[in-house]
Design a protein around this nucleic acid. Sequence first.
DNA 1: AATGAATGAGGGTTCATTCAT
DNA 2: TATGAATGAACCCTCATTCAT
Lengths: 225, 225, 225, 225
Amino acid sequence: MKAPKKSDARLKVVGKASKAVSKRAVVSDEKGSEKSNDKFSAILRGAIQVFARSGYFNAKVAEVARAAGVADGTVYLYFKNKDDLLVSIFNTVMAEFNARLRQELAAIADPQQQLRHFAKLHFESLEADRELAVVFQVEFRHSTKFMEQFSETMLADYLKMLREILERGQQQGAFRANLNPKVVAKVIFGALDEMVTNWVLSHHNFKLTPLVDPVMDVFLNGIEA
Amino acid sequence: MKAPKKSDARLKVVGKASKAVSKRAVVSDEKGSEKSNDKFSAILRGAIQVFARSGYFNAKVAEVARAAGVADGTVYLYFKNKDDLLVSIFNTVMAEFNARLRQELAAIADPQQQLRHFAKLHFESLEADRELAVVFQVEFRHSTKFMEQFSETMLADYLKMLREILERGQQQGAFRANLNPKVVAKVIFGALDEMVTNWVLSHHNFKLTPLVDPVMDVFLNGIEA
Amino acid sequence: MKAPKKSDARLKVVGKASKAVSKRAVVSDEKGSEKSNDKFSAILRGAIQVFARSGYFNAKVAEVARAAGVADGTVYLYFKNKDDLLVSIFNTVMAEFNARLRQELAAIADPQQQLRHFAKLHFESLEADRELAVVFQVEFRHSTKFMEQFSETMLADYLKMLREILERGQQQGAFRANLNPKVVAKVIFGALDEMVTNWVLSHHNFKLTPLVDPVMDVFLNGIEA
Amino acid sequence: MKAPKKSDARLKVVGKASKAVSKRAVVSDEKGSEKSNDKFSAILRGAIQVFARSGYFNAKVAEVARAAGVADGTVYLYFKNKDDLLVSIFNTVMAEFNARLRQELAAIADPQQQLRHFAKLHFESLEADRELAVVFQVEFRHSTKFMEQFSETMLADYLKMLREILERGQQQGAFRANLNPKVVAKVIFGALDEMVTNWVLSHHNFKLTPLVDPVMDVFLNGIEA
DNA sequence: AATGAATGAGGGTTCATTCAT
DNA sequence: TATGAATGAACCCTCATTCAT
């Protein structure tokens, strides 16, 4: 089975620990810390839910706690503050997404297919978790400060993978040599990102994954030598 | 004169009145209400400045008032509330930008050149006013509610123009017929938007306008039949 | 009339402005700023009342506001924070007390009489305003940080006056030359302070001013050459 | 040996049990409960340390627990609540101090020497344990409620001893008969107390014990017939 | 007895908005 | 119109205390 099943596509918000809270165990699917990991994940899920519904600034920590089924104060045992919730969602999800991306891309040889799979994974991951998608497309774009962090860390990793596909494609003669891979990577990310935002804001009244081909068609038929 | 001069590129935030405040006269370059119009504009400029620096949610209305050189209460004579400031910035600027876009595109016949000019104008407008650019790329993306309004009104107009260029190009045989103009319009907008965001977040350490050609190269060499 | 009347003895908490709030006019008994000065004084009185009843740490700013007849937020227009309330009470009252002390002592020639009047004024001032007395004897002694400030500023002034009386008395041969005026000043302050504290904690079930003579008797009959 | 050695001067905070916690054994120097007594003492020492550093209100029970090397919850096995920690420090230390005072005074015949030794012991005890001194001079003075308890119990005992010295001195003709021993006792306590407070707040930049003579000189040369 | 994760009440402070002048 | 003092609702976070283990 080439493509992961839908259920697999959902980004599991597991206990990749928030850096702010060192006491917590990191790995999720282990045996021991199951309990507290559950709580960490529950709070993160609660935050995604509440942030998606109310927006980060309007969301109250108390709502997050309630959504997670814990007391208000418990949130602060797992996260430094409200901000840390947002950062942790981002880091956790993005780390997981990038890891999966990297792994699945390794199994594909053809740069064009890699590119297509890249887009597919991008769309699938967010389409599978609508609340997370809202948080990703809207709530993360809050403040310059936050977005700078966003760009510098995980997004950089994302763009790097994209760039590497393009460069490998150029070396193999699959893509035009006179393209700046950095620029093209941003262009592609921008396009994919906009499709998702559009889908989120349209209240999901169209399907995202079917757009992989039309979108990639635009790019590939320009990138190909 | 083909290309507008730099000074022309700056989007003038003039007194296109906020819809929310009926008492105010709308058109700016008229005669009578000059005085109060100045105040309207001053507050809007103040808001852009403060929102760009502090972010919408952290910005205080009092700061906006101070930046505009008016009393706190005066803000509420021209704008319904804090939200209205953001909305008004968006509407005012976007209306002006779209009008200019429409006007300048009308003077260009070749669809490819139109597309190129479209991108150029997009970049130029924002590069010419860095504070406005911050507000556009970051602060507008705040809440789903806000972004929905964003998409449905002015952005729709922007995308419509883009679509029309594409469709005209398809009719003239300049662009491939088997492309979905709606999708391509979003793809292009997404790409341009991402370039600007990237430029904003990189603290403007590169020039935006020189990217018009590389970016359009990607699209054109895929869009052309 | 030698001694000020009781009503005069009450320390008027007037608008000696809190340093933290520069916008406020300082002088109280002037004409113009009557209004805001009233508010400043009202809040200070409210704070004295509430701090006396509940203790500083248990007192809620909201209670102070209510006692002063203003909204919660108004407190922060006149004072930087809750701490500033305590500091301002201290500075305002102490400045006024020291000024009065200095003025009245100037009218007395005999060092022994000065000392007696010093004690009398100390007792009278606090006996006349029981709530203020509680705040002075109990609430000010809160934290080392606060007490250090307490000692270094206004108390220093108080002790200086005491020391000067003693030194002048030594020069005139009224007091023994082989006494360390600094030590004796502290000893006398400590004694007076303890009497007041005792009176406060005994719920005022004895009169303070009658103790002037017995207490000073202890000191004078040791200080006299 | 008349004067206790320095090392003897330190008030040992031992397991005089908090009245509030009935489950605990009271006497310290017994055999059985040694273990838990260690813990009781450790927590009390931790409390003194932390209260001295941060002040009672800013101190966290968790800090006390950490300073004592026990878990947060353990504090509540030995003390009813945070308040009880303060009360227990006071009771424990004061009981020990008064006992020692009583015992050592019994060995002295001359009322003047008794008075001198009284002051010396007061100074020595606190000078030997700076953290305890901070707690005694500052943290105990927190709330009227607390201070009332303070005055009524242990301080009363302290003042009683002082009064008895004075009265005995009067009977023996060592002190003037026309003095009110109650007043003089308070005056002396106030003076000694102020010296210690001063020393605490000056960050101990002078020696306390050398002040015994100058201070007592002031009193004795007034009290003596 | 001992632990320490979990609780949840509580409050200082901010700031958008109003309104008397 | 314009002002800016006054308002008061709203919320993040802390931390004393509990209790299952």
